[in-house]
Structure formats: structure tokens, C-alpha cells
Write a protein that binds this DNA or RNA. Structure first.
Length: 519
RNA sequence: GGCGGGGUAGCUCAGUCGGUAGAGCAGUGGAAUCAUAAUCCAUGGGUCGGGGGUUCGAGUCCCUCCCCCGCUACCA
């Protein structure tokens, strides 16, 4: 038997200075759905997430909180782990940049880049924003209200810093990067983001400051402990640290690197699509296969911000709408890659129309009939008619379509395709009218009900990646064994066995009923 | 300023090679009654952002203008 094809995908590591919000939840959710789907498809998956714990900002926050820095990051990192539990993530690893394995990896990557002549000692002078962890050009700085200088973009204060610094020779990587994008058109997605990246690189690249002398909370530069690595070089390296680097001969590394997919928000695309491949190529390491930048959410049409106080906390919406509904909505509401709006009306529409009415009710109406008229067991089908074959054929063809959609991270399209079959099944039930057959032709009724529950088996197996809990309950009601819920079990060979006892059906997707007492 | 992406039914959006404008939701009418008052059927006279052009024929190609979004530059 051939070894299972490996699939390595990552979320960004989240900065511990932030509180987990819907943006973090969304990025990881997309990865989780992909990871689950790939596992169902028999792939050997490594799904990585974690936390970014270094930098001046963290150090200052710890002091402000009156805590030891390590104690502070331990506590905040835990919040991101907790988010994973609330959202049902199935990550295989959770890396923290304060771990030894990461320090070793970073330092070795640095040594290799130095050995190849791409890091040199220079001097940096400029405006530095502690909040943004970045130096700013003169054009990005303006006079602040309090007399000091602030950034133009978000008004965070900047301070003038002059210090010796190590530089990464990014300027030398312009051509290799352009060649990389050219040869690997799928390396940056979606298409519009790829254009932006190519355009940015074509415009010329400046060398990058990759160390800071004034920073203590970070990874020391090998051979020059007076310097600490620049936060992005540190953070990005987590992706190979988790793959066992620098031990490039270990199973982990040989199996999973290069990473198949880095999922990121559009704000950090440049770091992943430009700096990161350059760092790796400079060290003689293969760059990641693909970086996908998704969009932002607004809340009821408004940009989310701390000052507006309208930042969506994943815990709140999961509590209000339920995890399965939230997971479904976030990936169905908009084309993946675009910006989207989170509104109460929109999610309730999806919950009630798509989940409760179309999908949930399809299962309920058919399983109830089976329960009452087929001795609560999978019925014995007779010969299939063309109408039966049409529905079964559509259900069986779905796996190919969904695999292709998810292969290009088109989460919403996969759901649209699945729901086309949901609609087809509802129409089939109306046309066949098993409640009429019950009196006139019980054998035909049994066949019709069988065709629908067999269709439901396909639907439920496929929706597992998006809605693990609800889909699992549906598979329970269909009498599908735990070990028969993979994509390999789809198709005619895995059909439901007549006579299998079925439990009494219970509604799977609750309708959201507005609380009229409120307001 | 440059580059990229958009401007299509009340709302969210599809529209491959140019050939009588589509889907979902919402609305209206009807059927059915197995089901979570769920389902199914019927129903869209929209200047396809404005103007001009090419063509027998353009949402779909060309020119131009307006507006929105993203990336980026420069002036300062």
C-alpha cells in the first residue's frame, strides 16, 4: 500500500498581545475544515497553529500587568488554546515561539543565511512603532496630538531609534522571487493578491533589518547575543520549527516540508509571500507551496475596532448560534478570499433556510417515515428507476466536485455544490411522494426512502469537515459506523445495509427563533 | 499618480468562445401535508455605472469619463 500523501497546513501564529477575535477564529476555521476534509480523504495531515510570543510589545504588556514575561505569555497563549476548543479545531500541534525547539530552529536558520552571505551587520536609524513592531519611513510618520510623532495609518506612537542592526539582503532576492512566482502560479492566492505581491516585488526591494539591539525578549542572534532577532524572522520560522527543522533528515521534516498551505489574513500576506520565501531560499530551504490570503469581516456593516467596541468574540456567537451554525455561516457567507459582513440577519437566514429547512428537515422528514413505516431499520430497496439513479448519481459525483473546490480553498463553492444535491433530494421526495406510496406501493416507498437516506449518507459524510458535531449526529441516525465515515466509504460499495436498525430521529439543526420578549 | 479588482433584479452575487439577461434570499399566487409551520411549483417590463465606437448582433471587445475597494509611489 502506498504511503498516504502528506498534507501540511498552518494558521499564522497569533500574537499573544491580542485577544482572540473572529478574525483569528476564521483563519483557523478555514484550516480546520481543510484538515478534516483531507483526513477524511485519507491524507496524512499536519495541521499547525500556535502563538507568537516575542517582541517589545509583549514585554511591555507583561510589565504593565505586573507579571514575569514568561508567566504573562503562558497565560495569554492559553487563551488561544481555549479558542481552539470552543471552535472545535483539530490541530495536530500547537507551537509557541518561546519553546526550545523553536529557538534552535531560528538560530540554525539564521546561521545558514549568514553562511550563504545574506545577512550583514549595518546600522539602522528611523522611527519605530512599538505597537506595530515595525520601523516606519518618514512618509508614514506625522505629528501626533501629544506633540510626539505617530504613524499615519493608525496613529500609534513612534520613537526615534538608532542602533546597529543585522540586515537581510532582501534586495538580492527580487529576481529569484519573481521567478518563483512565475514558475509557481499557485504559490500566492487568490489571484488578485498574487498580482499585488508581484507588483510589490517588481517595484524593488530594500534590505530588511532583522535584529534589534535594544530588544531583550526574543531569540538571541547566534554569535552576537547583544542582538535579538527581528520579530518576523522569528515568527515565520515557526512553520519549519514544527516540521522538525533543523533536523532535515527526520521523518517529520521529510514528510511534511515544504508546507502545502499557509493560511493568512490579507494584512500579513507580504511577510508570508515575500520575506518568508526569501529567507528560506537564502538558507537553502524550499519555500512553501502556497500562501492564501483571506479577507476581513465587518460587523453589521461596520469595521470592527476596539474603540467602537464592536469586535466579535467567537465565544459569544458560538454561545448564541451554536458552533455548527457559526462554522457553516463563516464559510458559506462569501467567496473565500473576499471581505464579508457578519450580521445577525444573515446568519439566522443561513441557519433557518439552509440548515434547518433544507438540510435538517430533509433528514427529519425521511427518517421519520423510515422509523414509522420501515420497522425503524434501513429499508430493503427494489430496482432503481431513472429518477433514483439520477439522485444517487448526483450524490456520488459530489465527492469529486468538493475535493476540487477545497483543493483551491473554495469553501463556499463546495457548500453550494453540496446544497444543490440537498435541493435535488427535497424535490425528489416531493415528486415520489412516499406518503402516498405508503398505502399504494409499500415496496416502492421502501426504495424511495432508501435512495434518500443513502443520499443523506453522502451529504453527511461530506459536511463533517464543516460541521463535525451535527454531521456526526446525522450519521448516527443513519446507522453509519464510526469507521465508515470517510470519503473512501462513499459510492455504491459503501451503501447502507438494509436491515440496519436506526434510532428514533431527532432534529439536528435547530431553527433560530427570535426572542420576541426582548427589546 | 501607477498597478490590480469591482460597479448586473429590493438584498447577496453568477454570467465560460460576443448571439433573445440568470441563481439564492426577500415579495406575490398556488400545490402538498411525510417533516423542525419545514417542502414543492409558478411568478423578475432590471437604462447590465455614464457616454462613444467596432459588429448583422456587446453585460461580454475597443476608447473615454464617473464612483468604490486593495496594493503601491511621489510630491511634500
Amino acid at each position: 500500500m502506498a504511503p498516504r500523501a502528506a498534507y501540511y497546513l498552518s494558521t499564522p501564529i497569533y500574537y499573544v498581545n491580542d485577544s482572540p477575535h473572529i478574525g483569528h477564529a476564521y483563519t483557523s476555521l478555514a484550516c480546520d475544515v481543510l484538515a478534516r476534509f483531507m483526513r477524511l480523504d485519507g491524507r496524512d495531515v499536519l495541521f499547525l497553529t500556535g502563538t507568537d510570543e516575542h517582541g517589545q510589545k509583549v514585554e511591555k504588556s507583561a510589565i504593565a500587568a505586573g507579571m514575569e514575561t514568561q508567566e504573562f505569555v503562558d497565560q495569554v497563549s492559553e487563551r488561544f488554546r481555549a479558542l481552539g476548543e470552543v471552535m472545535g479545531y483539530s490541530n495536530d500541534d500547537f507551537i509557541r515561539t518561546t519553546e526550545d525547539r523553536h529557538t534552535r530552529s531560528c538560530q540554525e536558520l539564521w546561521r545558514r543565511i549568514v553562511a550563504n552571505g545574506h545577512i550583514y551587520l549595518g546600522k539602522y536609524a528611523g522611527w519605530y512603532s512599538v505597537r506595530d513592531e515595525a520601523f516606519c519611513t518618514e512618509a508614514e510618520v506625522t505629528d501626533g496630538p501629544g506633540g510626539g510623532k505617530v504613524t499615519v495609518t493608525d496613529g500609534s506612537p513612534v520613537e526615534w531609534v538608532e542602533e546597529p542592526s543585522y540586515f537581510f539582503r532582501l534586495s538580492a532576492w527580487q529576481e529569484p522571487l519573481l521567478e518563483f512566482y512565475e514558475k509557481n502560479p499557485q504559490a500566492v492566492a487568490p489571484e488578485s493578491r498574487r498580482n499585488e505581491v508581484v507588483s510589490f516585488v517588481s517595484g524593488g526591494l530594500n534590505d530588511l533589518s532583522v535584529s534589534r539591539a535594544s530588544l531583550k525578549w526574543g531569540i538571541p542572534v547566534p554569535g552576537d547575543p547583544g542582538h535579538t532577532m527581528y520579530v518576523w524572522l522569528d515568527a515565520l520560522t515557526n512553520y519549519i520549527s514544527a516540521a522538525g527543522f533543523p533536523d532535515t533528515e527526520c521523518d517529520l521534516y521529510r514528510t511534511y516540508w515544504p508546507c502545502d498551505l499557509h493560511m493568512v489574513g490579507k494584512d500579513i500576506l507580504r511577510f508570508h509571500a515575500v520575506y518568508w520565501p526569501a529567507f528560506l531560499m537564502a538558507a537553502g530551504v524550499k519555500p512553501p507551496t502556497r500562501v492564501f490570503a483571506h479577507g476581513w469581516w465587518t460587523n453589521e456593516g461596520e469595521k470592527m475596532s476596539k474603540s467602537l467596541g464592536n469586535v466579535i468574540d467567537p465565544h459569544d456567537i458560538v454561545e448564541r448560534y451554536g458552533l455548527d451554525a457559526v462554522r457553516y455561516f463563516l464559510l458559506r457567507a462569501l467567496p473565500f478570499g473576499s471581505d464579508g459582513d457578519f450580521s445577525h440577519r444573515a446568519i439566522v437566514g443561513r441557519m433557518n433556510d439552509d440548515l434547518a429547512n433544507d438540510y435538517g428537515n430533509l433528514a427529519q422528514r425521511v427518517l421519520t417515515m423510515v422509523n414509522r413505516n420501515c420497522a425503524a431499520a434501513v429499508p430493503e430497496p427494489g430496482a432503481f428507476t431513472p429518477a433514483d439513479d439520477a439522485l444517487l448519481g448526483a450524490a456520488e459525483a459530489l465527492v469529486e466536485t468538493v475535493r476540487a473546490d477545497l483543493g483551491e480553498q473554495s469553501f463556499h463553492r463546495a457548500l453550494i455544490h453540496i446544497w444543490e444535491v440537498v435541493g435535488q433530494a427535497n424535490r425528489y421526495v416531493d415528486e415520489q411522494a412516499p406518503w402516498v406510496l405508503r398505502k399504494e406501493d409499500p415496496a416502492r416507498m421502501a426504495t424511495v426512502l432508501y435512495v434518500v437516506i443513502e443520499t443523506l449518507r453522502h451529504l453527511a459524510v461530506l459536511t463533517q469537515a464543516y460541521m463535525p458535531a451535527a454531521s456526526g449526529r446525522m450519521l448516527d441516525q443513519l446507522g453509519v459506523a464510526e469507521d465508515a465515515r470517510t470519503l473512501a466509504a462513499l459510492g455504491p460499495d459503501g451503501r447502507l445495509a438494509p436491515g440496519t436498525p436506526l434510532p428514533k430521529p431527532e432534529p439536528i439543526f435547530p431553527r433560530f427563533v427570535e426572542d420576541s420578549a426582548a427589546s
